[in-house]
Simulated scan of single mutants.
Amino acid sequence: MTARDIRLYGDPVLRTPAAEITAIDEGVRALVQDLLDSVALPGRAGVAAPQIGVGVRAFSYNVDDVIGYILNPRVVEVRGEPELTGEGCLSVPGLWHDTPRHPYARVEGIDLDGEPVVLEGEGLMAQMLQHETDHLDGVVYLQRLRKDERARAMKAVRESDWF
């Protein structure tokens, strides 16, 4: 397996809600390995399957030196009022914006054996859980920005050398 190229903002796969994984087969196992290899690179907190061009509900994470994955995740709980938190995205390279995120999040899904998985936390973990499940819902963090911040962000996207 290998680290896969990251799809950039503007790619339709990033705006399309991802499909549930209904069968865990060798293709899903290979996808999970690619997600784990992709998130293990320096500076990455999470990689969602759509970011590597696969429209299914799966993501990998790398938070506090813990690397893992989850299939069919759903946010089941958030706590606290959203706070502005500096955030970037591999699919929107070079940009960093204050994004409203809840300080606590809990996500439930399954592993490759079909067993339940619960991921939860505060700080970076909560931010990553919300960010990656957004990707699975076809939402890029730019859509979460306040109106004035979003206008500045979209201008920066249009002026970037990758868009």
Rank of each mutant, 00 (worst) to 15 (best):
A23G: 06
G55S: 15
D11W: 01
S38N: 06
D148P: 05
D25I: 04
T133Q: 03
V118F: 05
G94P: 09
G123F: 06
E20V: 13
Q130W: 08
V157Q: 05
P100E: 10
R57F: 02
G10S: 08
R4W: 03
D25P: 01
E108K: 11
R106A: 11
R74W: 03
V118L: 11
G94N: 10
I110G: 12
V157Y: 10
P93W: 12
V117E: 09
A3G: 11
P73F: 03
Q127T: 13
R146F: 14
R44N: 07
P116V: 01
F59H: 05
A30K: 15
V28K: 10
V118E: 04
T133S: 01
I21G: 05
A3D: 09
L14Y: 07
T99C: 10
I21D: 04
L35I: 12
D11F: 05
D111R: 11
V47H: 06
E87C: 03
V56P: 01
L145S: 05
L14A: 08
R152V: 15
L31F: 14
Q51K: 05
E20I: 09
D34L: 10
Y104L: 11
K147S: 15
V78F: 00
P42V: 12
G43F: 11
V13W: 11
S160G: 11
M125S: 02
V139M: 00
L14Q: 03
P42E: 15
R79H: 09
R146T: 13
Q130R: 07
V140M: 06
A30D: 14
F59N: 04
R152G: 12
L136G: 05
R57C: 03
A156V: 09
D37W: 08
Y141G: 00
D64P: 01
K147D: 15
P17F: 09
G123Y: 06
A156C: 05
E159V: 08
T85L: 11
V56E: 02
W96A: 13
R106I: 13
R158D: 14
H97K: 14
R146C: 07
E120C: 05
R4S: 14
L95Q: 14
R7Y: 14
Y141W: 00
R146G: 15
N72Q: 01
Y141E: 01
D134C: 04
E149I: 14
M1K: 06
M128L: 13
G109V: 10
E77A: 14
G114A: 11
G80Q: 09
L31R: 12
I24T: 10
M125L: 13
D25Q: 04
Q51A: 02
V47M: 07
A3M: 09
G27W: 02
S160F: 12
G114R: 07
A30R: 15
Y141P: 02
M154G: 04
D25Y: 07
D34I: 04
P116A: 08
D111Y: 12
T2N: 13
V157A: 06
Q143T: 08
V92R: 01
S60V: 01
G121L: 03
P100W: 12
D134V: 07
E83F: 00
F59Y: 09
A58Q: 08
A3Y: 04
R146M: 15
T99H: 08
I6G: 08
V13H: 11
S38C: 08
V139R: 03
E159R: 14
A126V: 04
